[in-house]
C-alpha cells in the first residue's frame, strides 16, 4: 500500500489544462495545410498530379486541398513543389464535407450543435466507436482520450459498449466491404436522435486505401456525418477540439 502511495506521489498529477491552455505539440507536427497563393495554372496542374491520394484539386483557377483526404505526409510532393505548407495548427474538425475543401479562404472550423441537440447532448455524450478497417492508429489515439492526460470523462463524453446506450457513432477506417453491414446495423441500433462522427482520413474519404475494391472510400454516402475529424491518424487534441466545438465547450 505504501509503495502504491509513494509511486502515486512520484507520478504526480497529469491531466492537462486543455481547453483553458493550448497544448504543446512536437515541433515537427504537421497541422492544417496552407495553399500557396497565386500559383499559375501549370504549377497547379503539377501539384494536382503529384498527390497520390487525390487530395489536391484545381477549382476555378484556385488550388484547393481536401483536408479530409489529406494524410499530412511527411514527404508531401505537393509541399515539395512549393504549392502548400503545413502549419502547426492542430484544429481541423469541421461540420460539413465542403468545409474540408480549403483554398485561399479561412478554414471553417466545426460549429456547435443546434439548440435542441445541445440540450440533449451538451452535458453528456455517449459514443459507440466502430472500427471499419481502421489500422489501429486511429483507434489507439481515441483510446488515449480516456487516459489521465486528456480525461475525456471530465467533459461528459464517454465511449460505451452498447449502441443502445449511445448517442452517436464514431467511425474509423475506410469501411471495408466486410464491415459495411456491421456498420449499418450498429448505426441502426442507436436510438434517435443520433450523431455520426467520421474520424481520420480513412473514414472521411478512404485515406491510403482510397479506391481499393475492398473498401468503400469511407462513410461517404452511407451515413449522414455531423463531424469530420481529419488526420492520419488525427492527433488526440484534434479529436478533442472537434468534440468540444460540437458541444459548444470551445
Amino acid at each position: 500500500m505504501l509503495h502504491i502511495l509513494s509511486e502515486r506521489l512520484r507520478q504526480g498529477h497529469r491531466t492537462g489544462k486543455f481547453p483553458q491552455q493550448e497544448p504543446t505539440l512536437s515541433e515537427r507536427f504537421r497541422g492544417l495545410p496552407q495553399i500557396t497563393p497565386n500559383l499559375d495554372q501549370q504549377q497547379q496542374s503539377a501539384a494536382v498530379a503529384s498527390c497520390p491520394f487525390a487530395a489536391v484539386q484545381s477549382v476555378a483557377g484556385q488550388l484547393q486541398i481536401d483536408v479530409g483526404r489529406c494524410l499530412f505526409c511527411a514527404d508531401c510532393p505537393v509541399a515539395e513543389l512549393g504549392a502548400l505548407e503545413f502549419s502547426h495548427d492542430y484544429r481541423l474538425a469541421t461540420r460539413s464535407r465542403d468545409d474540408l475543401l480549403l483554398g485561399d479562404e479561412t478554414y471553417r472550423l466545426a460549429e456547435k450543435l443546434n439548440k435542441r441537440m445541445l440540450k440533449l447532448f451538451g452535458r453528456s455524450l455517449k459514443l459507440r466507436q466502430l472500427s471499419a478497417g481502421g489500422c489501429n492508429a486511429c483507434e489507439a489515439d481515441l483510446n488515449v482520450l480516456g487516459t489521465l492526460v486528456f480525461d475525456l470523462g471530465r467533459f461528459g463524453i464517454q465511449f460505451v459498449a452498447s449502441p443502445r446506450h449511445a448517442d452517436g457513432i464514431m467511425v474509423t477506417g475506410p469501411v471495408t466491404e466486410n464491415m459495411r453491414s456491421a456498420l449499418l446495423d450498429t448505426y441502426a441500433a442507436i436510438p434517435e436522435p443520433k450523431l455520426v462522427i467520421a474520424s481520420g482520413a480513412c473514414a472521411i474519404g478512404g485515406g491510403p486505401f482510397r479506391d481499393s475494391p475492398e473498401t468503400n472510400n469511407g462513410i461517404g454516402d452511407l451515413l449522414p456525418v455531423d463531424l469530420y475529424i481529419p488526420g492520419c491518424p488525427p492527433h488526440p487534441y484534434t479529436a478533442l477540439d472537434g468534440l468540444l466545438r460540437l458541444l459548444n465547450r470551445r
Binding site: 497520390p52 494524410l71 489500422c135 471495408t176 480513412c202 486505401f209 481499393s212 475492398e214
Partner: peptide, 24 residues
C-alpha cells in the same frame, strides 16, 4: 473484417501510395 486488399494494391508497384499503405 478489416481486409483492405493491401497485397493486391501493391502489385505493379512500388506505387507512390504503397509506402503509406504499408504504414497502415
Amino acid at each position: 473484417f478489416q481486409h483492405r486488399g493491401i497485397e493486391q494494391m501493391l502489385i505493379g508497384g512500388p506505387h507512390p501510395a504503397s509506402i503509406y499503405q504499408l504504414e497502415a
